[in-house]
Amino acid sequence: MPDTPPKVLVPAADLRAFAAALLEKGGLGAEHARTTADVFVWAALRGVDSHGIARVPAYLDLLAKGVANATADLTIESNAPATAVVDADRAPGPVALSVAADEAVRRARATGVASVGVRRTVHTGAIGYYVSKIAEQGLVGVGFVAGMPNMGYTGAQGAAVATSPLAIAVPAHAHAPLLLDMATATIALGKLRQARASGTPLPEGAAATEDGTPTTDPARAVVPLPLGGAKGSGMSLAFELLTGVLVGAPILASFHSDDPAGREHRQNALLIAVDPAAYGDPDAFVAAVDRTLSTVKGLPVADGSDGVFYPGERSAATAAERGAHGVPVAPKVWRELTLHADKLGVTLPDTAV
């Protein structure tokens, strides 16, 4: 077996500047390029490499093809103090959802709870980023996303609903914030591709063939199956209703219709911000969160387990490690980035192996 090429290590700040430079050359304005790069590097720092720096070439492709609008005119509509809708005009998701997160925080400060919908965006990126930004302001963040159907639905054949994610972030003080960030699928599409490339058998119930037959053969697997069967598919359907249908931009019904426009790539989202101050003393709330997380951490460790962890704890530790020593970039991804840098005239950052 040939040796696997080592990953390239890049300091986070340099990687962020490099990604922003590539995206700006790809057509985004400087501010939007920095925002998008920040989302990618945040994911890469936390070990979510599928949504990390590897997304830069894909976004450059979306921009080049006009699927993502590099000069989008984002607008904010509101009919009530605690609600708003960001019309993204096909802006990249990191741009649109960052605007929505800021708007949700601003409104929640005044109303206690606020929700901001996002319609007509393109690939939201790591949804955990946006709710984490809300939690950094001392608020609880909740987010849903719905997109193009690419996952099975219990009882239906083929791709029926989206692998719609849910994310919740709760601020803490003595601990890293709780961050639950999960898809409604049993297995991510990226892991399906990795299994196919390596020939690694899939877990039972993780994926199905085109006609909906469950399979463990990665060569035959086409669509991931919902997490928990009807539970995961039901959540995905609910998120479609709470995002696209709620803001007048449904995806599911048009995708499964005869309308060719129904297959045009798009995503919708809903972000919710909850201000603990509207319920009592926010400092007491954070202290109680810390006590709760400490209680979970102090539970007896089961045989064979390496510890008791809460959502977001290990990814926060990964972020600290990578922030100190550099972000690893896979050789294939680095080759792609190098090709784009040569094409666009962007200087590569200093690296280590």
Rank of each mutant, 00 (worst) to 15 (best):
M1N: 12
P2A: 13
P5N: 09
P5M: 04
V8S: 06
V10K: 00
A13H: 13
A13Q: 12
G26H: 04
L28F: 00
A37M: 04
V39C: 08
V41F: 00
V48C: 09
V48Y: 11
D49Y: 07
S50P: 14
I53E: 02
R55F: 09
R55H: 09
A58Y: 12
D61T: 15
A64S: 12
N69Y: 04
A72R: 00
A72H: 03
T75S: 12
I76C: 11
I76G: 10
P81H: 12
T83H: 08
V86H: 01
D89Y: 04
R90Y: 13
A91T: 07
P92Q: 13
G93P: 00
P94A: 07
L97D: 03
A100Y: 02
E103I: 03
E103H: 05
V105R: 01
A110H: 15
S115D: 11
V116Q: 03
G117T: 14
V118Y: 07
R120L: 15
T121I: 15
T124N: 14
T124Y: 15
G128V: 04
Y130M: 07
A135L: 08
Q137I: 06
G138Q: 04
F144P: 01
V145G: 00
V145M: 01
G147I: 07
M148Q: 08
M151P: 01
M151S: 06
A156I: 13
A162E: 03
S164L: 03
L166K: 07
A167C: 12
I168S: 10
H173T: 15
T184M: 09
I187M: 07
A188I: 13
K191P: 10
R193N: 12
R196E: 13
A197P: 01
L202Q: 00
P203E: 01
A206N: 01
A206P: 07
A208K: 00
A208G: 00
P214E: 00
T215R: 06
R220W: 03
V222G: 04
V222Y: 01
V223M: 14
L227D: 02
G228C: 08
A230L: 13
S233P: 09
M235Q: 14
L241K: 11
L246P: 10
G248W: 02
I251E: 01
L252K: 08
S254I: 15
F255Y: 14
E264I: 11
L271F: 05
A273Q: 03
V274K: 08
D275W: 00
P276Y: 02
A277F: 00
G280R: 11
P282Y: 03
P282A: 03
D283Y: 09
A284I: 11
T295Q: 14
T295F: 14
G298K: 10
G304I: 13
G307V: 10
P311R: 04
S315Y: 10
S315Q: 13
A316I: 08
A317Q: 14
A320G: 13
A320S: 15
E321M: 11
E321W: 13
G323C: 14
A324H: 09
G326Y: 02
V327S: 00
A330M: 05
K332Y: 10
W334I: 06
H340G: 03
L344E: 02
G345R: 11
